[in-house]
């Protein structure tokens, strides 16, 4: 790729410029800054689209009482139950249990705080998804 062909398609990078290696007139490589490239932006957008859909689906399930807010936070943070178990120190089985709305309602303040700390939010935010 030649230096003056390096694309500058603004998008996913939000103004951050990254470095690419491109050739100058003599074919020698130099570092060139770029604001992004269209295919990369498209691919990133569609990856986020999938995540946002999952978050929305989880939100609906929580609001209709089919799942506890934990499901929403898992999707929102793109983590698995296993990762949440590692972050909180709460066992995977208990997390599965806490995914049920009635079990989640009975949680002690201490357990709620553990979850909130791991997800970097307040207990109020934990209980009420956005």
């Amino acid at each position: 790729m030649e230096k003056d062909q390096v694309p500058q398609d603004h998008g996913a990078l939000e103004g951050v410029r990254k470095v690419l290696y491109a050739t100058d007139k003599n074919g020698t490589y130099t570092k060139v800054k770029t604001a992004g490239w269209e295919p990369e932006n498209i691919a990133l957008d569609q990856a986020w689209e999938v995540i946002n859909e999952r978050v929305e689906l989880a939100r609906q399930r929580v609001l209709s009482g089919k799942a506890s807010p934990l499901l929403f936070h898992l999707e929102k943070n793109m983590i698995t139950k296993g990762m949440l178990a590692d972050l909180t120190g709460i066992s995977w089985f208990r997390i599965v249990w806490h995914m049920r709305p009635f079990a989640f309602e009975k949680l002690s303040q201490k357990t709620l705080e553990k979850y909130a700390r791991a997800l970097n939010i307040s207990v109020a935010q934990l209980i009420k998804p956005e």
Partner: peptide, 26 residues
């Protein structure tokens, strides 16, 4: 989505473009 993943591994930040091939050229 499968295609998108290949593009991202090839072109996203940290690759130097062209799936690291340009860094290797340099």
């Amino acid at each position: 989505l499968y295609l998108g993943q290949v593009i991202r591994m090839q072109e996203e930040i940290g690759t130097g473009g062209g799936g690291f091939r340009f860094i290797f050229g340099a």
